[in-house]
Structures are given as structure tokens and as C-alpha cells.
Design a protein around this nucleic acid. Structure first.
Length: 489
RNA sequence: GGCCCUAUCGUCUAGCGGUUUAGGACGUCAGCUUCUCAAGCUGGAAACGCGGGUUCGACUCCCGCUGGGGCUACCA
């Protein structure tokens, strides 16, 4: 294969969406796999909604994911002259024409057609305006749009999609469509054709929602005399919400990469997750993997990826799987790496990154985290003394008397332990077992109340780990308080 | 409404006419471990939407239906 040049063309009208990121990823994988180029291009022709803030958000989040452009990032609004030149060429060749219909007129026409159950399509009113008429309308200060004249005899447009095979559409169903707005700014699919051609884009890999635009674009290529430059197309399936609706920023839904980042998902997670939506490496291609797990780094994905293997049907976003993957990647992080990610962004108010206990808390809570933002909730008792209640302290298979004995004896035993021994979990465990044995108790009479006393929780790391993490002073303090609460009646 | 795309466990998917008692992952359930939770390990339940063809044979090919999605703007 000749080295492909692909592009991701987001419009900066919102933050980087997961769907856009996935499209970017597939473009990137395809480019890298085939030693080609991956280019980011900003389609900012929607003047009302495009902002610099969103541009930055999109570019920086793509970068965060590891997807950087191999060429200068162009803005379409800075290339208006180019599009205007092409548009006037089309005008001159009568392949396009000025349309003076107002938005209101167009809308009324559409409504009429819809009422009559006809497909809405431009009627062609301005198709053959004479020079005189045009001059007159211009005098009235009407700002025209430019419409592409869809040839009456064009017939069936065929699109060879790399993922879906041949897709056909009858050109007769497509009315003459606007390529330049009345403010002389192109529509994205017109500008896109020109940019793709100028940037020598070989493959357009984008969302399925662009299939119908592709037919318009083919018509544009033909009108421009660029038929030979029509790139290959591949339309990726959509990502859907669990209710099967299009994944969008409706309230409550997490859809932007920034949101996932802020919640504490790692870029590796998102990459791994997105790649597995609509695609899975062939079994034969995976040496040594043997269907075991579905963990793939960006590098592995790059070597395994094949565009033709991408699925055709929409994929539902599954938060469970995302959380699983994130937990997996979090667990593989070294403790200090994890600390740097948690500090200071994911620490609850008042907690300090310098706190000595933080490192130990991290080692203990690590296995339990699905995302960085879980940390505060999972580890609060390391920083704040728990509130004690009697019921919690008593193991369900034990009772008050045994719990008092277990907790009391343990406190006494542990208070005899040297600070230096407190650093060794083995030593701590020895003592707990010793108490169980000497007092003729069950594990649950000792381990449970000690753990509950230290954490204030029904579920937590083991008492030995907590003793170790909290240190002698704090541990004994908590044990005493718990004992007090237990003796109160 | 019209046009287009699409259809394997709850979810993501493997399967590319016979090798399949349909495989894996997440989730779920049970067990092991165990003071609890998590992690880990072991095992289980769980799917080819329906109806016609084609064929010796169909999850795999074709058609229809049904379901789902997308598009139908001077948004992208």
C-alpha cells in the first residue's frame, strides 16, 4: 500500500467527544500501521459556535491520548480565499449557481414537502436565473448562497466503502445543495473536499453519520474535475448510549475526553477501550495472546490494526468494561506514579500530598480503585479519625464480650510492640495471631474489631495493613477510642 | 415520511458453508482464599431476531419482515 495520509477533522464547537477521539484513534492506527501520516484539521466554518477554547481542548486532549498531528494544524477559516476561488470557478462553469432564496422561504418549502410526504429537497427555483434577475436581487441587498447544480442525468452514485462495501444512492434524490453560505464561508463538506484534495488525503475515515455527506462530496469532486482524487472512504459505526441512543452530551452522560480525564481515567484505558469498540484483533494475529485478555497498548494496537476488520454495527458504550480496564491500568502503576496522578487533583480538601501516610494509603487502596477520583472516598479514614459505633465493631459471628476481650487484649499486646517492629507487617500479624491463640478466640473476634476500629468501615484492607499504615501512635489512639465506644452502654 | 447503514450471550466481540456441544473479554452467579472488601485463581449460567430461499449441509450466501441507528440545515 502507498503510504496513506489520513486526517481527523473536528469542528471546534465543543469539547473533544469520545466519538471524535475514537475516530481519531482509528485514523491514527491506520496511518501508523501503514507508515503514513495522521493530520489534524480544524473545521471551524461554523462561525457562531466555533471557539478557540474548544480548539485548545480538542488538540490538548488528543495529545493527552497520544494522538498528535504529523503536520501543521490548519484552520479552514484561515483558508477562505481558497474555497472562494474554487466556488467562483464552479460558478463560472455553471456547475454551481447563486441562490437568493431566504431561509424562511426554504423552510416553508420544506414544510410543504414534508406535509405532502415528499422528501424535502431544494426545488431549483434559482437554478436558471438570468443576469438581469440576479442584478436585481443583488440590488435588493439579498445575499446569495452558492448551490451546486446536481446534474439531472447523474443517476446512481456509487461509493466504495472500505468497511461496508459498495453503497449506492440515487443522485435524483439529492437536491441542489448549498456549498457556500451567504456570508461567503463554505460548508464543511465543500471545504473538506478541497482540503482533502490539497492535503493529498488518501483515506477518509470518519463516522457513519457522514455517509450521506459522502455522496454530496463525490458530486463536488466531480464538479471540480477532481474525480481522480476522490479518496477511499471508510465509515465507522457510531458509539451508542446504553439506551441505544446516539452518545451525546445530554445531562449526566460523560461524553468528553476531558470529563473522563477529570474523573481519573487514564489515557491507556481510553485508548484500549475505544479501540475495542467495533473492532477486535484477529485471533490468528495475536501471538501468545490466546484469547486470554483484552489488554492492548497503543503500540500493540498499531501493529495489530486492520481497517477491513472494523465492524459495521453500532457499539454501545459499556462503563463496566471501561472501569475494569482503568482498574487494571491503575493497578499496574508504580506507587509513586500513582501518587503523582492523585496529587493534588484527586485529594479531598485538607489532605496534603506531603502527608507521610499518603503513600501507604495508596499502596493499600490501589487494588480497590476504578478511577483516580475513587481515592478520596476509599482512603478518607487514613486522614480523618473515624466515628465509632458499637455495632460496627462487633463481628457478625461474634458478640460484645468476645469483641471486648479481643480488642482489649490486642491493644495491650500491641502497645508493648516497638516502633521499629511496627514497620514490619509480619511482626504485627504475629501479635494478632498470638492474641487469638492465647485468649482462645476466633480470628473474627480480633481481626474484625481491630480493622473496624482502625478504618471505621465494614470493608477495608486488613488490620495488619492498617496498623502498618497508620503507625503506632495513631493506631493505639484509635484502638483506645474504639474500646471506649464498645464499653459504653 | 423518504433515503442510507445495520443485526451472534445483558454489553464489546470471535466466527469468514462442514473443524462448533458457537470461542474470548466485561458484567453476573458459585467456589477457593478469608476478619471484611478489593485483587487473584477455578468453575457455572448466558447468544446466532423472525420467515422464506440457495446448498448434500447455513451463524456464515440471497430475499423479505421486524428491530436498532444515521441522514434528511446557509451545523459539523
Amino acid at each position: 500500500m502507498i503510504k496513506p495520509i489520513v486526517r481527523i477533522a473536528p469542528s471546534p464547537t465543543g469539547k473533544l467527544h469520545l466519538g471524535t477521539a475514537r475516530t481519531a484513534l482509528f485514523n491514527y492506527l491506520f496511518a501508523r500501521k501503514n507508515k503514513g501520516k495522521f493530520i489534524i484539521r480544524l473545521e471551524d466554518t461554523d462561525k457562531k459556535r466555533s471557539t478557540l477554547k474548544y480548539e485548545k481542548n480538542i488538540i490538548s486532549n488528543l495529545k493527552w491520548l497520544g494522538l498528535e498531528s504529523d503536520a501543521k494544524i490548519e484552520r479552514q477559516m484561515e483558508r477562505l480565499k481558497i474555497y472562494q476561488k474554487y466556488a467562483s470557478k464552479l460558478l463560472k462553469e455553471k456547475k454551481a449557481y447563486l441562490c437568493f432564496c431566504s431561509a424562511q422561504e426554504l423552510d416553508e418549502e420544506r414544510q410543504r414537502q414534508l406535509k405532502r410526504k415528499q422528501p424535502p429537497r431544494y426545488c431549483g427555483k434559482c437554478r436558471d436565473l438570468s443576469k438581469k434577475e440576479i442584478a436585481k436581487l443583488k440590488k435588493e441587498d439579498r445575499r446569495p448562497t452558492i448551490r451546486l447544480r446536481v446534474p439531472d442525468d447523474r443517476g446512481t452514485i456509487k461509493l466504495k466503502d472500505l468497511i461496508r462495501g459498495e453503497i449506492k444512492e440515487n443522485a435524483g434524490l439529492i437536491g441542489d445543495f448549498v456549498i457556500m453560505k451567504s456570508n461567503e464561508v463554505p460548508l464543511f463538506f465543500f471545504a473538506g473536499v478541497i482540503d482533502d484534495s490539497l492535503q493529498k488525503i488518501t483515506h477518509v475515515i470518519r463516522g457513519e453519520d457522514h455517509i450521506s455527506n459522502t455522496f454530496n462530496q463525490i458530486l463536488i469532486y466531480e464538479a471540480l474535475g477532481l474525480k481522480k482524487e476522490i479518496p477511499e472512504f471508510a465509515h465507522l459505526p457510531m458509539i451508542l448510549n446504553s439506551d441505544r441512543s446516539k452518545m451525546s452530551k445530554r445531562k449526566g452522560d460523560t461524553t468528553t475526553v476531558e470529563d473522563f480525564k477529570n474523573l481519573g481515567y487514564l489515557p491507556e484505558t481510553l485508548i484500549n477501550f475505544m479501540a475495542l469498540l467495533s473492532w477486535h484483533p484477529r485471533r490468528d494475529d495475536q501471538k501468545g495472546k490466546e484469547d486470554k485478555d483484552e489488554i492492548y497498548s497503543l503500540q500493540e494496537l498499531t501493529s495489530l490494526f486492520k481497517l477491513e476488520e472494523v465492524g459495521k454495527s453500532a457499539a454501545i458504550f459499556d462503563k463496566n468494561k471501561l472501569d475494569y480496564l482503568n482498574g487494571y491500568y491503575l493497578r499496574r502503576l508504580k506507587n509513586d506514579e500513582l501518587k503523582n496522578l492523585i496529587c493534588p487533583k484527586h485529594l479531598a480538601e485538607g489532605w496534603k500530598c506531603e502527608d507521610k501516610i499518603l503513600e501507604r494509603a495508596i499502596t493499600l487502596v490501589k487494588d480497590r480503585m476504578k478511577k483516580l477520583s475513587d481515592f478520596s472516598e476509599l482512603a478518607d479514614y487514613f486522614f480523618e479519625e473515624p466515628v465509632y459505633n458499637k455495632e460496627l465493631l462487633i463481628f457478625k459471628k461474634s458478640d460484645e464480650i468476645y469483641t471486648q476481650r479481643g480488642l482489649g487484649a490486642t491493644t495491650e499486646e500491641l502497645s508493648k510492640l516497638k516502633e521499629s517492629d511496627w514497620e514490619k507487617q509480619g511482626r504485627l500479624e504475629e501479635r494478632l495471631r498470638k492474641v487469638v491463640k492465647e485468649e482462645k478466640l476466633n480470628n473474627g473476634d480480633v481481626f474484625w474489631p481491630v480493622r473496624a476500629a482502625l478504618s471505621g468501615r465494614e470493608a477495608s484492607p486488613s488490620p495488619v495493613e492498617l496498623l502498618w499504615a497508620l503507625g503506632k501512635n495513631e493506631s493505639l489512639k484509635r484502638l483506645d477510642k474504639a474500646l471506649e465506644a464498645l464499653n459504653k452502654n
